[in-house]
């Protein structure tokens, strides 16, 4: 479904992604793991074209996205949830969802506001509230719901467990599994190995912008040296 082929991304003069390649297949949940500064967020942004790779290709359903503006990437079926949430705090919950609304897509599950309120009951109670009066966990739920309004075929979740209470992290894990069950393909970036193992089918480990491991968690379990070298748990 998504195939990233030898991309190189820079932030200013710093070389962040170095010939990075990987694939995401339809219906799976993939976890992108690595230390802080390993390039996880930059990978997400490079797929979304919020950071433009200098070379290489980002193939999504047969089309190269490199060079497209972010809105066209979103329209192609990629949903992006940034790590810092970035909800529109002056807008109500319903208005936040409205910003994300896009027409239905044949190859992806379709979401209505009411369906999303079933998945995120907290949001339903607060539909008229402005974003700024919500707790961090609720804001995190809202960003995901907002992105789902675009009916994406592939959901990119950047560090969904970062900075939220443990009890919300559990809820988040359940939600991701539920989304998978609905037929959504998901890619998350994580530092929390426990969380990643709980939700993902496969792990990709990057370090210094290069891929160091790509396989199932069972395979990772058998290579503790990789885990120790790049994940430092």
């Amino acid at each position: 479904m998504l195939s990233v082929e030898r991309i190189n991304s820079y932030y200013g003069k710093a070389h962040i992604l170095d010939d990075l390649s990987f694939e995401v297949r339809r219906g799976e949940v993939v976890a992108l793991l690595g230390r802080n500064g390993a390039g996880k967020s930059t990978t997400m942004k490079s797929v979304m074209q919020l950071v433009r790779p200098r070379d290489g290709a980002v193939m999504f359903q047969g089309r190269n996205l490199v060079g497209d503006p972010a809105f066209r990437v979103a329209k192609a079926g990629l949903g992006y949830v940034p790590e810092d949430r970035r909800i529109f705090t002056d807008l109500t919950v319903l208005e936040n969802l409205e910003v994300g609304r896009q027409p239905a897509r044949r190859d992806a599950p379709h979401w209505s506001v009411e369906q999303l309120f079933q998945i995120f009951p907290n949001l339903s109670e607060r539909r008229g509230n402005r974003g700024k009066h919500m707790s961090g966990g609720e804001q995190q739920m809202l960003t995901i719901a907002r992105t789902l309004m675009g009916n994406p075929a592939l959901l990119l979740l950047d560090e969904p467990s970062e900075g939220i209470a443990p009890v919300i992290v559990e809820q988040m894990a359940r939600t991701i599994l539920q989304l998978k069950a609905e037929g959504l393909t998901v890619m998350i970036s994580e530092q929390n190995l426990h969380f990643a193992r709980a939700v993902a089918d496969r792990a990709i480990i990057i370090e210094g912008g290069q891929k160091k491991f790509d396989g199932t968690f069972a395979e990772l379990e058998q290579q503790p040296e990789i885990r120790d070298a790049y994940l430092s748990v």
Binding site: P166, V167, V169, E170, R174, H194, R197, A198
Partner: peptide
Amino acid sequence: QEVYLGGGTLFKEEA
């Protein structure tokens, strides 16, 4: 545990 830490069951089983 109720409001913050959670049961921790989901991850503990896995771990």
